[in-house]
Design a protein around this nucleic acid. Sequence first.
RNA 1: GCGGGCGUCGCCAAGUGGUUAAGGCAGCGGCUUGUGGCGCCGCUAUUCGGGGGUUCGACUCCCCUCGCUCGCCCCA
Length: 421
Amino acid sequence: MTNLQSLRGMIDLLPSQAERWQKVEALARNHFRRAGLGEIRTPLIEHTELFSRGIGETTDVVGKEMYSFIDRGDRSCTLRPEGTASVVRSVIQNGLLSQGPQRLWYMGPMFRYERPQAGRQRQFHQIGAEFFGLSSEISDAEIISIAWDFLNDLGLQELTLEINSLGTTEDRKKYRENLVAWLENFSEQLDDQSLKQLKQNPLRILDSKKAHIQELLNGAPMIGEVLCQRSQDRFLNIQSILNSLGIPFTINQKLVRGLDYYCHTAFEITSKQLGAQATVCGGGRYDGLVEQLGGPATPSIGWAIGLERLLILLSEDYFKKEVPEVYIVNKGCKAQIEALKLARDLRKSNFLVDIDYSGSAFSKQFKRANRSNASWAVVIGDQELLQKEVRLKSLKGETIDPGEHFVKISDLNQIIERLRS
RNA sequence: GCGGGCGUCGCCAAGUGGUUAAGGCAGCGGCUUGUGGCGCCGCUAUUCGGGGGUUCGACUCCCCUCGCUCGCCCCA
C-alpha cells in the first residue's frame, strides 16, 4: 500500500451516497418532530468507564470492541460504541430528569472494532430514540411504533418485529439459574463457544446460529415460564396495545439482546434481505441503567437503527437524483462573470443552477447541458453581451427547437418568470 | 479474533506463463470556430492493490502484506 487509505472499516460517503443519507435523515427528523421528541447531541468520546459500567463488563462490545486510548491528561477515553450510555450520562449530568419525562432522539457515528462485513463497519451510524421517566406500557408501544412507522414510511418490505420480555432483574436471575442448570445436563452436546457462554453469559446461547444448539434448545426452559405475575401482565398488555395499533409482531422467547441493561421489553426489527446482519432496529427497556450510572431511579426505554443496514434495504428507485434546473452556457471571460452573477441571482430565487466552465464550443456545452437533464439552457455569449440580453432555451420536450426567448439581462423578474413557465 | 472467496483505467470487464494488456460506460477533442438529444472518428492503464520470490520471460505460479467481500463470534 503506497498511497494513504482510510482506516479499515471506515468509509467515505461520496456525494451520490450522501444525498441518499440526507433523505433518510430528513425523514427521521420529520418523524421525530411530529412525535414531539427533542434532539440530543452528545460527544463522540467519553470516559471509558461510562461504557464499561453502562453496557456491561462481560459484553463483547466492552470486552473486545471498544476504541479506547489514553489521552494527554492520562484519562482512559473511548469512542462511543453506542448511543444510550452517553445519552443517559448527559441526561443525568444536565439535570433533565427533574424536569419531567424526556423524549429524545439522536443520530451520529458509533465505533466498534470488529471485522467489517455486509452492513457492519467500524465507524457506523445510528439513529436512536430514548424515553426517560415513562413506565407505562403505552410508552413501550409508542416508541416501538415510532420506529415501525419510520421504517414503513421508507417503503421497506419484509420487515419483522419480534418482541420478548426479559422480566425484572429477579426474573432474569431466576431464569438464568434454570437455564444453566438445564444446559449442564447436556454439556457434552455443547461446543466450546457455548460452554464459554454458559459461564459468562448463558442467555446468549439462546440466539446461537448453530443448528444443533437450536435443536437442543427446543426442550430448554423459556423465560416466559418464570416471569412473575406483574411482568407477565405487563408483557400481555403491550401485546394487546400493539394489536390495537395494527402493528404486526411475533413473540420470540429466545430474543435476549446483547447488552446487560435490558429488562422487560426487548424487541428487534429484522429484514430477510440483509443476510447475517439482519437486525435493522434493536431496543428495549432499561429501567435500572440511570440509577446504575448515578442518577435517580428512572424507567427508560429506547432503540437504535443502524443506518448502513437501512440504506442497503432501500431500493435504488427510492432515490431520484436531483438535477439542475438551469444550465448556463457561456463563452468568454466577460460572459463567464455575467454567468456567475446570474447564477447567484437565480440561486437566491431557489433555482438549481450549473455553470459550464469549459469555454468549449457551444455544441459541446449544449451536449453537456442536455446530459445534465436541466430544463433550461441560458446562453450568454458575445452577441448576447452586445445586446445586453440572455437567451433562454428550453431543453425539454420532443422537438429540438421548442423556441427561444430573449430577455434583457437586467430584467431578472422576467427571466425568472420565463424559467418558471 | 477465526474460516472461505476476491483485487486488471473513475466505473463495469476480457485476458490464466511468451511479441504493442481486448471491449463497454463515463471523460476529453473533432466531424459542426455560436447552438442540444442520434451517428461517426480520434484520445485516455509503460501497467494489472503493494512488496518479495520462481522463471530466459508473470496480470497469469509461490510467499508476505494491505484492502474488499461472505460466514462465525457479536451487534444496529
